[in-house]
């Protein structure tokens, strides 16, 4: 049986581990070849690539700090030379500095905004050129921190708000090129990043507080991303789909 993404090429930024890893594996399971991008953890990225290849599709590992515009150019020059096109871009890589607003400085601001927001712009610009004439999908990963206040999450929240606004502008401006642009926002998702926040006591273990009865997993986010990359989602443009098990619409809910 032919798979929905067979013959498509997807770049997933920050896909060695966490949510990016789940997205890369999900798209690969639907037949897409995957560019696995990483920043510091080559071992994790290479493991992801091996897992992808085991599904019978191709994987290419590219190390690049997406916070550095010159490195973004290197990623897309490589894809242009090696593949000549791109069908799907997932802006997943993110970093941040856990501080309250009053403790933020220029360095923390620039670091976080460069990786979480500026990279979304630059990657989308370069990706759209490789999608020219064939259309494509761009999905960026956001979080509830774009609209809600979480302790020490200020700069990441602000960067995600920029990402969501950019998603709307990109969706409209790239629509004539047949490129669908959307975002997926998760609440607390079970990953290394989250374990850090819980360990530091910065957020509560939200397991019991989620109306859906369990925490959001990387696979829950990946499933929504895969849907947005499918033709069934063609008419969804510029939206941020929230995957949170109901948490954000039931702020006053108390566990049974």
């Amino acid at each position: 049986m032919s798979q929905p993404l067979q013959g498509r090429l997807a770049l997933v930024t920050g896909s060695g581990r966490g949510i990016g890893n789940a997205i890369a594996l999900k798209l690969a399971s639907q037949g897409a070849d995957i560019i696995v991008n990483f920043f510091r953890r080559r071992d994790a990225a290479e493991k992801t690539a091996r897992d992808i290849e085991a599904m019978g599709v191709k994987a290419q590992v590219i190390k690049a700090n997406v916070g550095d515009p010159a490195k973004i150019d290197e990623i897309f020059d490589t894809i242009g030379n090696d593949w000549g096109h791109l069908d799907i871009l997932i802006n997943n890589a993110a970093s941040g500095v856990g501080r309250s607003v009053m403790d933020l400085d220029v360095k923390a601001w620039d670091w976080t905004m460069d990786i979480n927001a500026k990279a979304v712009l630059l990657c989308s610009q370069r990706a759209s050129k490789l999608m020219e004439g064939r259309g494509g999908k761009i999905v960026s990963i956001s979080s509830l921190g774009s609209s809600f206040v979480l302790p020490t999450y200020a700069i990441v929240g602000v960067s995600k708000a920029a990402l969501e606004a950019l998603t709307r502008y990109l969706a409209i401006e790239l629509a004539p090129k047949g490129i669908c642009v959307n975002a997926v926002a998760g609440s607390a998702v079970e990953t290394e990043a989250l374990k850090f926040y819980i360990k530091e006591g910065l957020i509560k273990d939200t397991r019991q507080a989620t109306p859906a009865g369990r925490m959001v997993t990387p696979e829950d986010v990946a499933n929504t991303v895969a849907f947005l990359c499918s033709e069934e989602a063609f008419m969804i443009r510029g939206q941020t789909i929230i995957v949170d098990g109901g948490t954000s619409v039931a702020p006053f809910a108390t566990p049974e």
């Binding site: 510091r40 953890r41 080559r42 190390k63 500095v97 360095k107 923390a108 670091w111």
Partner: peptide, 24 residues
Amino acid sequence: SLDIVQAMVAVEDTFDIEIPDEEA
């Protein structure tokens, strides 16, 4: 931690080498 990762990145770029996290 931000200083440390920035130092690693700057040294990698200066010398055109890779310092994987697991080594650092």
